[in-house]
Amino acid sequence: MKYAFPLAAVVALILIALIAVQIPGMQYLFGVIIPYLAVAVFVGGFIYRLCYWGKSPVPFNIPTTCGQEFSLPWIKQDKLECPSTRLQVVARMFLEIVLFRSLWRNTKATMYEGPKLTYESSKWLWLFGIVFHYSFLIIVLRHLRLFLEPVPSCVALVEILDSLLQVGAPLMYITDATILLSLIMLLLRRLWNPYVRYISLANDYFPLFLILAIVGTGILMRYFIRSNVDIEAIKQLAIGLATLHPTIVGPISSLFYVHLFLVCTLLVYFPFSKLMHMGGVFLSPTRNLANDSRMHRHINPWNPPIKPHSYASYEDEFREDMIAQGIPVEQGGPQEAGAK
């Protein structure tokens, strides 16, 4: 039942926005004040989280290695899976971020009669994960058409490619279908697979439901419930927000305010949740360190400073006790004193 509370929370958020914008004057709260607050919290929270992580020391050299490390010249190193130089680390990080290589390694364990344990490659998480992330990226880029005037040609190009199939009018976006499909599959995976379901928490379900609701309201506005979804008025509001002179011209569908409120919720939630893996992936010591602990000493930053302690200073510190115990000393000993 760990999915019930997040689902109820998202439904409550939808209802709050849906009901509140019926009250005259509340459009300004949901259209202007909350979006500004949300962007401020998102940017501030993002900086706070990254600085917090930046201040955290990395005591050990802990890259995850999945291949042959740098060794003798005739042993072939796996440069991507066990990088030993900065360039190799950059290549590994780049492919991790762009292609999600670590999810490609996902395996499924199954127990058969016998008992016999088998492992097989399971690429579904990788597939739906990468489809979801790229769809989301393209959708965010596409939305820039509402925030930028004149619309830059690169944003227009993204839109042209996304609506390349020319299905219906307004043109269907390919990413609208792929993000919806991948989100549903990622959600079903959590509910279906008993192991994943067992480890799934409310904060795993909440972003899924929230983004599903954002996608759902967006799709409804574009294709199905178009009444009062006035793109010109919406763009004027967006441009007004960006130029710090927000105005709400004319009535806009309450569906739009629900969509906007859910996006604001996502922005506020983002820096303080698992979604921060967007910034965190760059700061993962298991990914961004080179496996070079046999070439360079990794200094633990919280090691106390160890000052050199020579035998001469040791003797200075303990001379009297050493003499009292009859231990020979090099300087100032009783023999020396007796000789004089």
Partner: peptide, 23 residues
């Protein structure tokens, strides 16, 4: 990295000018 992210997020605040506001 942070500067790049923040600038990317804040692009709409720098890109538009007074001419952009005309409906």
């Amino acid at each position: 990295g942070l500067l790049v992210v923040v600038l990317l997020v804040l692009i709409p605040f720098f890109y538009n000018n007074d001419a952009s506001k005309a409906a």
